[in-house]
Each structure stands twice: as C-alpha cells, then as structure tokens.
Design a protein around this nucleic acid. Sequence first.
DNA 1: AATTAATGCAACTGTGGGGTTGCAGTAATC
DNA 2: GATTACTGCAACCCCACAGTTGCATTAATT
Lengths: 105, 105
Amino acid sequence: MSQTPLVPVFAALGDETRWSILAALGGGDASASTLAGRLPVTRQAIAKHLAVLQDVGLVEPVRVGREVRYRVLGARLTATARDLDRVGAEWEQRLAEIKRIAEGL
Amino acid sequence: MSQTPLVPVFAALGDETRWSILAALGGGDASASTLAGRLPVTRQAIAKHLAVLQDVGLVEPVRVGREVRYRVLGARLTATARDLDRVGAEWEQRLAEIKRIAEGL
DNA sequence: AATTAATGCAACTGTGGGGTTGCAGTAATC
DNA sequence: GATTACTGCAACCCCACAGTTGCATTAATT
C-alpha cells in the first residue's frame, strides 16, 4: 500500500520550517493564515509548504467556513516509518551475513 | 543514543541519486571511483553525496589500500525509522482523541 | 449590496545544492 | 624513483526552492 514513492516524502520532511508547521498543527487543525501568526514566515510561504506536505499525503485540507484548515495525517508518518524500517532491516541483515562470511563461519 | 537531529537525515534521504548510491552499495562496499562507473554521475558528485551521507551517519568510510570504500549503516536507517514511527504514533493518538471528543464520548 | 477577511495566483529575488571540469596531492605498483 | 591510479580541493554553472511583495478572487458577515 501507499504506492506514493517515499523519496519525495523524505524530501518534504527534510525541511525545518515544514516540521515547525507540523508541530504548530499539533495543537489542532489550523489554516495558513492562523499558522502565519504563530510562525516567523509569510502566509504565502506557509501555503507553499502546505501544498508540498499535501502532495505527499502528510497533511489534509478541511474547508471550514471561508477558511481551509489543515490536519496532520499521522498514518502516512507511521507508514513511511515502516517502509524505512524494512529497508534498514535488509541492510542490517546483509551486513550480518557479510560479517559471518568474513569470520569464516 | 544518536542525538543526531533527524531533519538532516531526512534531507539526505530526500534525493534520488543518494538512494541509487545506497542501492549500488548494496552489492558490497565500494569507492567513489567504483560507484562512478556504475552511476551516470561524476566521481566528484558522488564524493559530495557520500560526504552528506557520512555527515548524517548513514554511511561509513573504510580505507582499503589507496582507496576509500563506503559501507551502508543500516542501523541508522532503522533508528530513524523508530524515531519517525514514534512521532507518527503520537499524532495518530492525538487524532483518535479528537475524534472521540467530537463524537461526544 | 457593501464590507470584511479569508484564499489563490503571479512575478521576482537570493541562496543553497547538485552537477561539472580541472588540477593538485598522495599513496601503491613496477 | 618513475609511473599509475586513486582521493581531495576549488572554482564555476544552473536550477530548484524557500521566501517575499502585490494584487485579484472568493466567500461570510452585516
């Protein structure tokens, strides 16, 4: 599942401002304008970041009246974590085998 | 352990070329020059990528004769996966509580 | 309908980073 | 010691992207 390639997800998570946005969304859903009041960046900059986060499925827009609030999708984070763990486990196993061979077992 | 902040790790993992380097290292440790023979990029470009990967602890240099081979550290991958999973779990829990409250339970 | 307050779009700037070429340094091999 | 083959460093190009300002749009509120 999650046919979305993970490299873009990592790219999205590789920016401090984006994390501060995610952190700010931790206190409940919020709009770009609201977030602009809490962070030291422009509303438009935040809007761009939210677009990036939405593109990789880390965040979801919710229309409330005339504003668009965003909600963090923890599921994508845990899913990405699972994928990453799989990759890491493969390499650890591979290294273990190499070590075994090197020790002549 | 591993007090290394994870944002730079994600930034490092947010590049396709870097993943292809990691993939190429899957067949055993290799030097920048060797990798340059397998990938469509210059040796110097690969060297920079390896520096980035090394800075965040995803890769480790090993001197062999006159060359410097690199080895993937799967441990850092799994560690990062664990951190990411923790964050994701927090958000999922928070969302669950909000949903409960919204449903008036 | 007029006002108010939100979003959306566009153009522009600046910097960081991926990529290159070229050459100097350094360590094995003969 | 000369040669060979690898690494290291520096300068440079180019583009994507974070960030800005400014204005048009759209949707509630009164």
